[in-house]
């Protein structure tokens, strides 16, 4: 009887430890995923600033132009890979981000410094805002 009691206690202790361990791991993973999503938000805000700096600069900067296109691609890749693929960022959001920054005013031959409230600047801000809103919404939903 005592052996049975001992076995039951051991089973309860091990079972309890397993449950706590699993829940802790799950919480840790959620925290890590949230942190990764927040890094993308930071990257997007940096991209927004760099893109507006490029389009509002007095002269065309080829290096900055290349860097912007590569950064957009890096962000696009990151949100399509695990675990951030769970955010289900729609292709429309990715397309709008790329278009807002790299469709107009990105050639030396027709570059014009943009004023603060220009359509290009507004489009960049809107595309970045939409992207961040989607991340925040999905992050709260799947990794509360």
């Amino acid at each position: 009887m005592k052996v049975l009691e001992l076995l039951l206690n051991c089973a309860l202790i091990i079972g309890g430890w397993c449950v706590v361990h699993c829940l802790t791991l799950k919480a840790e993973r959620r925290k890590e995923n949230r942190a990764k999503a927040e890094t993308v938000v930071t990257d997007l805000l940096e991209l927004e600033e760099a893109a507006i700096r490029f389009h509002c600069a007095p002269e065309f900067d080829g290096h900055a132009n290349d860097a912007l296109a590569r950064k957009i691609q890096r962000i696009t890749q990151i949100v399509r890979q695990r675990p951030l693929d769970k955010l289900s960022i729609d292709w429309k959001i990715l397309k709008e981000l790329r278009q807002s920054i790299t469709r107009k005013n990105t050639d030396q031959s027709d570059f014009k410094p943009q004023p603060a409230g220009s359509e290009i600047v507004r489009d960049i801000r809107c595309a970045v805002d939409d992207f961040i809103s989607r991340i925040e919404y999905k992050k709260a939903e799947i990794w509360p």
Partner: peptide, 10 residues
């Protein structure tokens, strides 16, 4: 490709 831009595609 690296850094495909919309202006290129368009």
């Amino acid at each position: 490709t690296r850094g495909l831009a919309s202006s290129f595609l368009e």
